[in-house]
Amino acid sequence: MTTRCEWDVLPEPVKRAAEDRTGPILKAESATSGRNSELAATLWTSQGRIFCKGITTASSLSVMHHNEISVSQFLPAELAPRLLWHVEEGGWLLLGFEHVTGQHADLSPGSGDIPLVTDAVNVIAQVSVPAGRRAMSTQWARALTSEIHAAPPEKASAWSVDNADTLTSWASRAPEHIDGPALIHTDLNPANFLIADTARVIDWAWWRTGAAWIDPAFVLIRLIAAGHPPAEAEQWANRIPGFRDANPDALTAFAASVLRLWERKFPSTNTTAAARAWAQHRLG
């Protein structure tokens, strides 16, 4: 979580570095959403609008902005707003993006946004990135190392406590299943889709490479959180070839691992409750 900085109070050399890319900035309006940028603003220029996000280079969160820079070269224009420029000046890193309008996705049953989200998830699965870049299997194994040997968290549900040994056994198998060459966003929540005529996907700070079924699995959990029964959410995910072809044991292991990790970090959220519902469905 960061403290939001207004454009007008940025150091003058930082603003000049941005204007070297944009021309004079006529107006700036801060965004109200987002947690990981110290600057997030729409900038009006003589050439039109630009969305700019930024972070101080000393911040530990600056790595997320470098991640967005590194993945931008692989993202199709129809999938994500284009990164137009980035500058590092005066202790700040700024990224300037194509300005895209749209509403966050509605994933509730019957929503007309769901077909557009489906199309976007299918496009992500077709993006080619260099093999082995930011492998999710390594990150997931590291996250689970202590978790699978720990007792259930204090605020875990009664079901999770009663089934702790089964969840631990399945969760421990997850890293062996999630390796792969596919691009994965890893945070496909409704706020990271912008819906207009198509769905555009934003905030690529957590991108990884891994199995092609992982992003559909994350969306599946969000669908459950929005009111879909787990079996119905899996029917949606089966429209994505990578998910449809996945080893069933891989899905069960992943469901268990997501629950173990999220129940400790976010025990009371609707999304964690959805992850639990999916794990219950997978485990019978």
Rank of each mutant, 00 (worst) to 15 (best):
L183E: 01
E154C: 08
R35A: 12
S70Q: 07
G210V: 05
H228G: 12
A80I: 02
V87D: 07
A141L: 04
Q139N: 10
W140S: 02
T32W: 00
L194V: 08
D113I: 14
A253L: 00
S30I: 03
S62L: 04
L188I: 05
P24S: 10
V258I: 08
F254K: 00
A151R: 15
A80G: 13
F51T: 11
D113L: 06
T2V: 13
R4Y: 02
A253E: 02
A17M: 04
G180F: 03
D179A: 13
E234S: 14
I240G: 05
R133P: 06
A125G: 14
A164E: 13
N163K: 07
T3Y: 04
N122K: 10
L259E: 06
G132H: 08
F74V: 00
E263M: 13
A120F: 10
N36V: 10
A233V: 14
P229D: 13
V117P: 00
D106Y: 05
T186V: 10
W170K: 07
D179V: 00
V129Y: 02
L116H: 07
S160M: 10
A233Y: 09
M1L: 03
L167C: 08
V129M: 03
E38F: 01
I114G: 09
L79G: 14
S62D: 11
C5A: 12
W92G: 13
L93K: 09
W92T: 13
D20S: 12
A231S: 15
I69E: 08
W236A: 12
R49E: 05
E12N: 11
R260D: 00
I214V: 04
I69M: 01
L261Q: 00
I221T: 12
L61V: 06
V100R: 06
A174K: 01
S62P: 10
I224G: 07
A225M: 06
Q235W: 05
L107S: 11
A277D: 12
Q235K: 14
A135L: 01
T22V: 08
R49Q: 11
D203M: 04
L43Q: 09
H104W: 01
T252M: 03
T271E: 00
H185P: 09
R133E: 12
A191G: 14
W7I: 15
G91V: 08
N189D: 04
L94F: 15
P267S: 05
V258F: 04
L107F: 14
R4A: 11
M64V: 07
Q126V: 02
G210S: 10
T252C: 13
T168N: 06
S108L: 06
V258S: 03
V123A: 09
P11K: 09
S60M: 01
W170G: 04
A191R: 07
L251S: 02
D113M: 11
H228I: 03
I195H: 06
R222Y: 12
E98C: 12
N192S: 04
D106R: 14
C5W: 02
A156L: 05
T56W: 04
N192Q: 02
W170E: 03
G112H: 10
G23M: 03
E232D: 15
D113G: 15
H66I: 12
S72E: 01
G112C: 11
K53A: 13
L223K: 12
